[in-house]
Every structure is written in C-alpha cells, then in structure tokens.
C-alpha cells in the first residue's frame, strides 16, 4: 500500500473527530476522501500529513511506519501536500515559491552563500508550465488569482518529488473554468504518483477518482469504487441527513 492508516484516533475534548479510521491507499491510486461536513476529513488529513499528532493508531507510508515522524520528515520520505487555504509566501514570485520547494528536494545544496541555481529555476518553471502557469513565473504570489494560487500549490507540492500527493480541497473556491483546468492538471499527473484527494465537490471526485472512502462522524462509512459509493444507500443517507440539517440552518 502507498499509504495505510490503522485505528487512527484523535479527539478534541469529548468530541472524537477521527474515531478509529483504517484507510488503505493503493500505489498509483487516485483515491478520494469524501464525507459531509464535520465528518473529520480535515482532521484525518492533518493526522496523515503529521501536522497534528494522533491520540492512537498508526500511519504507514509505503512499508514504513511514520507515526512518530514530523511532517518535515514525512515530506522528506515522499509525502507532499497542498493546503486548503492557498497561503503561500507573500513576498515571493511564483517561480521563487516553487524554487524554494525544488531546492529542498532535488539534491542541490542549500548554501548560506549565493549560487546560481539554473537547474532549480528551470525545473521550477517547468513545474509551473505543467500546472498551467507558464509565463506567470515572475508574478508576485499576492497578485495571482485564487485559482492560480491553487494551481501554484499543486506545482509546489509536485516540486517535493512526492510518491504520495495529498490534496486538501483543491477545488475549494474555484470557478467552473478553474475546476475544469484542475481536473486536466490532475489527469496529467504521472501515474506513479499516488493521489489522496479530500474534496467537497462530488462531480470533481467522480471524474478523477478510481477509489473513494466515505467518512462519516469520524468513522469510515464505506470504501470502494466510485460506482459502489454512488450506489450506496448508507452514503446517500449520510449525505442527505447532513443535507437536511444544512437546509435547516440555511433555510
């Protein structure tokens, strides 16, 4: 398995946000993690990346137990992430941002004296072009549109040479056109990179994913193919139940 979690648990006070989650992501899979609001998706994501410590359970990356490792170490082992809020580096251009990730992972020495990093720059621009940001490299990050920043997030995450790429709501706040482009970018990713996508937008999930895990109230409700998930009564119930509550709030 590219990623396996066993009995992951994390509570906040009396609330068990993630309550014993077993998750297995096959190598090369496009695995989606969905669930209604409050299902524990974000917490699970943080437990997997190592941003947050689990109360119990283990996380394995490939054959390696990474439970005790920090997010820094996990990143070095090939786990890379995009963040939900595309908050990158406010004082840098797009190229500089990607270069920062490239220089850490392409084996170039991070010297405390200036050196020409032609290879790093070229790789950064290549990655930018790969996510549809060619020609935007010298734009300061704050001047990029929200959608562009999300694309930049993907380029930065790819610069870490991941074997496993974790995407936290990559489509949040995107326009329909930006979403379509994101689907293209994701479809073009090398097949040997395993994807785990946390996403709200079910259309996007069903057009990209080949495996889906549904989370509900901190537990795994169902794991299966997109078709199985679509056909499941339990899933519909969980979502509809949540829908009804949401309608109550919004109505």
């Amino acid at each position: 398995m590219a990623l396996r979690s066993t009995g992951l648990r994390r509570s906040f006070g009396a609330l068990a946000a993630v309550d014993g989650v077993d998750l297995a992501v096959a190598p090369g899979a496009r695995h989606a993690l969905i669930g209604p609001n409050g299902a524990g998706k974000s917490t699970l994501f943080k437990l997997v990346t190592g941003t947050m410590r689990a109360d119990a359970g283990t996380v394995e990356l490939g054959d390696r137990d990474v439970t005790g490792l920090s997010e820094v170490a996990r990143c070095r082992l090939g786990m890379s992430q995009t963040m939900q809020h595309a908050s990158l580096f406010g004082s840098m251009t797009a190229t500089e941002t990607v270069a920062l990730a490239v220089q850490r992972h392409d084996g170039s020495r991070i010297t405390p004296w200036p050196r020409r990093q032609r290879a790093v720059r070229e790789r950064a621009e290549e990655l930018l072009a790969g996510v549809g940001l060619a020609g935007r490299g010298s734009t300061p990050v704050p001047s990029l549109s929200h959608g562009e920043r999300k694309q930049l997030e993907v380029a930065v995450a790819l610069a870490c040479k991941p074997s496993l790429l974790l995407l936290d709501e990559p489509a949040a706040g995107m326009s329909a056109a930006e979403r379509a482009r994101l689907v293209e970018v994701l479809a073009e990713l090398p097949a040997d990179i395993t994807l785990l996508i946390v996403e709200h937008d079910l259309d996007l999930v069903f057009s990209v994913a080949d495996a889906v895990t549904v989370l509900h109230l901190g537990r795994v409700l169902l794991s299966g193919t997109p078709d199985e998930v679509r056909a499941s009564e339990d899933v519909r119930e969980a979502y509809l139940g949540a829908k009804r509550r949401e309608e109550l709030f919004l109505g």
């Binding site: 820094v72 004082s91 920062l100 850490r104 992972h105 991070i110 004296w113 050196r115 790093v120």
Partner: peptide
C-alpha cells in the same frame, strides 16, 4: 543565498515551510 530564501520563506509562512520539508 538559497539558505536566505528559506529564511524568508519561514518569515512569510512557517507552517508551509515545514510542509515543504524544511
């Protein structure tokens, strides 16, 4: 230097730098 670029990255967004493996 490249190292200085990393320092600026820490100034701008430290959690993100950690996620990048720094």
């Amino acid at each position: 230097s490249p190292w200085g670029a990393a320092l600026r990255g820490i100034r701008d967004n430290e959690p993100r730098m950690r996620a990048l493996g720094y």
